[in-house]
Structures are given as structure tokens and as C-alpha cells.
Design a protein around this nucleic acid. Structure first.
Lengths: 147, 147
DNA sequence: GTACGGGTAGTGTCAGCGGGACGATGGGCG
DNA sequence: CGCCCATCGTCCCGCTGACACTACCCGTAC
């Protein structure tokens, strides 16, 4: 089974990822960071959808946003088309914070890549790219492309 | 910069990892799981070292272990050489639980691998293996092998 | 040897924050 | 009016740090 070998090796990648997170967002809980990422990926999202993405109940998401707003990390904007809804946006501060996080990750990734052989780098990029493609396609079965 | 491409692709790997965790250990907090993994990797570890690995204060680790012991996930054994220390061990239950988690991860990984080309799989294994090697070698600079 | 003191491992207690859930409430849409 | 979105009050639990405390090891002095 190739998967076992990957499982072991992937831990190194995960560790790199994690250490970047710890370094860049020391005072941000996991839930808060997830929420920020979701909002950043889908700006103007409403609370209900956010709660769904984070797999929590609506009221929990509301409280989470309370804290994020208090920390200056997101902005609640009353919806213009439907005033029942609110739209969530990143603030300049949180945008910068996410950017720093990504930069830190890239730096750590780059540091490791620098110690790899060119062939190894190429293989990693190729393999991981195809993996991402396969994973985000259809998680269920193999009905990939019948076009 | 190749790192940027990797950064994006690695997210898919992370997502796979995460979904396996959610499915297998639904009632286990992040801290508890980390503790289990640390104990599993270094059985007989004492509280102080565990606290250090988890980057928490000693008393917090003690509390955490209280809950783990109560849940039947770890065992506290009074040290025989130094009776101040205790040695922490996984229980058969937690051992099985970690095994299931790993199995679930392997299954999910395997499902994605099945949808990749043979060349892609080979590249992924090769690249990730070398990455892991480079990452766990010397995180600082490039003094790799001068032997 | 016994007694004492310093250092170390772990626990107990207290307080606080973050987070998840349920239900009730208010505001807005159709 | 009925329905939906969001908020708030309330409750409970897990995690964490700070501090005091006990139990234990060890070196030293009597």
C-alpha cells in the first residue's frame, strides 16, 4: 500500500504547516482561524452559511463572530437586499494577518524545498498538484472525466 | 516560487487528513488527541515532558490526563525508579482508536490515490518522501552531508 | 545513622476564556 | 400571518494559567 508511505511523509508537511500557524497567529484559536479563512474565501457570506461550513449551530457562529468583531478581525454588514441577513467581511487587519500567515508558510516551505534535489522538487509539485486535482474532483468514486 | 503552488496543493492533503480525524475521533478534543499521539510515540513519558511537547504548563497537562484517564484512554503508572514521576501509557482502547484513525486516513488517502495516474502517484511518493527527509534533517541551513 | 534543606514531580484549587447547544426573542420578508 | 435570519440569555464543558501544596529525591550536616 503506497498510502502508508504517504501517511508518514505527509506528517512532515503537516508539521511545517502547523509551525507556521503557531508562529504567525499565536493568539488565534483554531475555530477563529477557520472562520477567517472561510470568510476570506467567500467574502460577504452570511452567518447561516458560515455556521454550516464550520459545522456548528447558528448561535455558536454568532458568538464566534462576536469575538472576531471585538478583535477587529471581521466586519458585520447588514445585508442590503435582505435586511435579515448580515454579510461578513475581513478587515484590513485580518487580511494582512492571513497574508502574513501565508507568507510564513511559504517561507518555511521554501526553506525545506531549498534542501531538496531539483528532481525531488519537481516530483513533489507534480504529485501534489495531481493529488489536489484528484481530491477536489469527486471525493466519492471514480466518475472523473467522461466528457 | 514553487512554494506557492505547493501551498495550494497541500491544502487538499490537509483536508483529507482532517476529514479522517473528524470521522474517526468525533468525541476527542484536539488537545486530547495530540496528547494521545505524543504518548503513543513515546510511551512511558512523564507528565513534565508531555507538557513540554504540548507546550502547556504542567498543571494543565495533569488536568488533561485526568480527563484522558477518566475516559479510559491513558494509564498513569507510578514510576519505579523515581516515585515522584509517573509514566503514561496508552490503553488497549486508545491504541485501537489511534489505529482506526490511521486506517481511516489511509483509506481516504488511498481513495484519492486511486484516481491518480501511476506516474502521478510515483511522483507524489518520491517528492513527499524527499520532502520529509529534508524537513526532518536540519531545519536550519544546508549543511546536509559533508561526509 | 538521622535530621534538615533545596530542588523536582504532580496534584488541588481558583479564575477566566472559548466554544457548543437549546430556547426564546426581535426584526424583516413574502 | 407564517417563515426565516440573526441575536441574546442561559447552561455546561474543555482548556489554560497562576498559585499553593504535598510527596519525593538527594546532598549535607549533625
Amino acid at each position: 500500500m503506497r498510502a502508508a508511505a504517504l501517511d508518514d511523509a505527509a506528517q512532515a508537511l503537516l508539521a511545517t504547516w502547523e509551525s507556521a500557524r503557531e508562529g504567525s497567529t499565536p493568539r488565534l484559536s483554531a475555530a477563529q482561524l477557520s472562520a477567517l479563512i472561510v470568510v476570506g474565501k467567500d467574502e460577504g457570506i452570511n452567518l447561516r452559511t458560515l455556521a454550516g461550513r464550520l459545522r456548528m449551530i447558528l448561535s455558536s457562529a454568532s458568538r464566534l463572530c462576536d469575538r472576531l468583531v471585538a478583535a477587529g478581525l471581521v466586519e458585520r454588514v447588514p445585508g442590503r437586499v435582505d435586511r435579515r441577513e448580515i454579510a461578513l467581511f475581513l478587515t484590513p487587519y485580518s487580511r494582512q494577518l492571513l497574508e502574513e500567515l501565508r507568507a510564513s508558510r511559504l517561507a518555511m516551505l521554501g526553506a525545506v524545498l531549498d534542501r531538496m534535489s531539483p528532481a525531488g522538487r519537481a516530483a513533489l509539485v507534480r504529485g501534489l498538484t495531481e493529488f489536489a486535482h484528484a481530491a477536489t474532483g469527486q471525493p466519492a468514486d471514480a466518475a472523473v472525466r467522461t466528457a
